[in-house]
Amino acid sequence: MATALAEGAEVNSSIGEEEGRTALIGAAVGGSLLACEFLLQNGANINHRDLRGRGALHAAAAATHTGQVCLLLKRGANQYAVDERGQDPLAIAVETANADIVTLLRMARMNEEMRDSEGVFGSAGDDETFQDIFRDFSDMASHDPERLSRRQFGRGGEEEGAEHKEGRGVNSGGNRSE
């Protein structure tokens, strides 16, 4: 990416074959925190939307990438923008049943509402609990992203898909085994 930018690539250009997605939306879909941060630091428009009205926050919520959702919210992504189906990122997170992302989006909304209701006489900045939660999610996303991955379990308690990931499996009781 650095080479492409150095050679004159436009960080906010969209790709017609990819429904007008920008590199930031692609990075959010792909799940790369490093790529998202790099693009944002190099002027990527956090609120650019593709031809279907989806931005990077929509894409991260749909792909259930908790770390990207946290990063994009911290960097000021518009969580109220709706796509062509009329869905905002919160509706997408509810649809995908990702409790962590739903929690992050609801906490961010609540924090905004509290800040707005306090007006000019209220305390400046974000709620301390809000800051702690986002700091914890950010730390996990940066240092232990596996902890933010939700596993899908079948009715018998077995993990769907691969039987074991990285040497860790799930026993018949639904508990992780090392």
Rank of each mutant, 00 (worst) to 15 (best):
M1E: 07
V11W: 14
G157S: 10
D116F: 07
D139M: 13
V82N: 11
L40M: 02
R151Y: 11
L51W: 09
A162Y: 09
G30I: 00
L90A: 07
R85V: 06
D83T: 03
M1T: 11
G30F: 01
H58Q: 06
Q152G: 05
A27I: 00
A59I: 00
T66L: 03
G53D: 12
H48C: 09
S117M: 12
A124H: 09
G53P: 09
E19Q: 15
V29I: 09
V170R: 02
A9S: 10
S177Y: 04
N171R: 07
R75S: 03
S149P: 01
F130S: 10
F130D: 04
E112R: 14
G173C: 01
E7Y: 11
H48T: 07
K74W: 12
F38T: 03
V11Q: 13
D83N: 15
D100F: 04
E95C: 13
D88N: 15
G43R: 07
H65Y: 01
A60D: 05
E18W: 15
E18Y: 15
I25R: 01
E166A: 12
V102S: 08
I25D: 01
H143Q: 13
L39Y: 01
E166S: 11
A61L: 01
A99V: 11
T3D: 11
R176V: 06
D83A: 09
S32C: 02
G16V: 15
D88Q: 10
N175A: 10
R147E: 15
A2F: 06
S177A: 10
D139L: 15
S177H: 05
S123H: 11
